[in-house]
Design a protein around this nucleic acid. Structure first.
Lengths: 235, 235
DNA sequence: TGTACATCAGTGAACGCGCGTTCACTGATGTAC
DNA sequence: TGTACATCAGTGAACGCGCGTTCACTGATGTAC
């Protein structure tokens, strides 16, 4: 079943038709009236809540409609299929997470060669802020899990990690120009990925939240400090 | 639909009936004849392969049967439902992973206060061996993803991580008796969890396999070295 | 070594259900004059 | 400021399909004497 851009649907992809019959994940219509925008948001919000209640496996379009007080065609007006809803939810959550890191980089990040404990604390606070964003979104943690679960949505996560890692790379490169480029790139990718993983672990284990966050921040800071101090020599 | 231990099925849980109507994840009959054992294994192997081909969402019992050359009731003779198959696959994979770490602890782990680079290399080799086990299992990486995806299977992963972390804790405690107990426990949990996450990341990005593995091993080793050197002072 | 019988292993065919999705339509909103 | 009309937004009802699961059964294997 390929996406049909019949009627006045905006065709988002050039119709090469050489591609495999992938189900599109893009939204269909941009709602133009206020009522429609409210419906669009209602669908997303309801999906987030239901995700937390029943999990991604048992989530169905019919269920979303019933809960939102809509009928099925209302969903299909804006989303080509149920994965597109998850895609939009994931995209927004990732964007919000990324924004936290970007702000941290610009404002609060403590240089690695200054006070060690201050650098750890700053990083820990940033990680906590990322979690705050996830928790603010209804069903936030379950959206993250859905991104793991659905292969079609892997790219959303990857794109986010790549974008964040690149920004961190640029920031560190500026302060430490003689660190081996390859290693610095790998290092920023690694900590970004593991930072995301760590946050999911913490969300699953809120009892250890403080200690885990502190230790993760310490681990990453130790690692980066070693890299910028000794990373120039190695190839 | 609650599990029915009718006929000669072995009742695995005491029938308190006060519990919520959870679908059981245990296997039903232990196959007693060779033919049956072969069928049991065939179901698991086929499921693993299909997992890699279609993903956990699109996996169905009917599909498994068709691919295995069986009929549906053959599956239901051994597994109460489709999640039980995934549970068994996950259990086995986790056990195999754990075994690699246990062997490493007993044989190859390099003490943290000896040569740093040797300790890093030893840890990197262990991480690579864990991945080897995953890759040896048909659909191995997809089994790991399924453990993320299906909430019912979360415990499988958690149990594995906890068991491994405890063993690492014991080993480190013996060599470094004055490190703060609480911190050491959190640290072992953290690295075990993040180690698992790192391996999944690497499985998703085989091009960076060597560099990522080396950097992860370095990060963990730096972290542990710092902990055993300075961890006694802090509370 | 053969036979009778109990148990184990798997088949053939179907079930009810809820899923994702669509059709033809009505009501709501915005716009031109 | 009112009306006619075009477009936007959402409804009511249903569709075919494949899912997980089960029933009553046949064939295969093991065991006792």
């Amino acid at each position: 079943m390929r996406p049909h851009s019949r009627r006045n649907g905006i065709p988002r992809t050039t119709p090469t038709d050489a591609e495999p019959p992938r189900t599109s994940l893009d939204t269909k219509l941009a709602p133009s009236q206020d009522r429609a925008r409210a419906t669009f948001e209602l669908i997303l919000e309801t999906t987030g809540k239901l995700l937390a209640e029943v999990g991604v496996d048992n989530l169905s379009t019919n269920m979303i409609c019933e809960r939102a007080g809509l009928t099925p065609p209302a969903i299909y007006r804006y989303f080509p299929n149920k994965y597109a809803i998850l895609h939009e939810l994931g995209r927004r959550l990732m964007a919000a997470e990324d924004e936290v890191v970007f702000e941290w980089l610009e404002r609060d990040a403590v240089p690695l060669d200054s006070d060690f404990e201050a650098a750890v604390a700053s990083r820990a606070a940033m990680l906590a802020n990322v979690r705050k964003v996830v928790r603010a979104q209804p069903g936030g943690a379950w959206i993250l899990r859905a991104l793991h679960a659905v292969p079609m949505l892997h790219d959303v996560r990857t794109a986010s990690v790549t974008a964040v890692a690149r920004r961190i790379f640029k920031a560190l490169r500026k302060d430490h120009p003689d660190v081996d480029t390859r290693r610095l790139k790998v290092a920023t990718m690694l900590t970004t990925w593991l930072g995301a993983a760590a946050n999911e672990i913490v969300l699953d284990n809120p009892r250890l939240e403080r200690q885990l966050t502190r230790e993760v921040a310490r681990m990453f800071t130790l690692y980066y400090r070693d890299l910028v101090e000794n990373g120039a020599e190695r190839t």
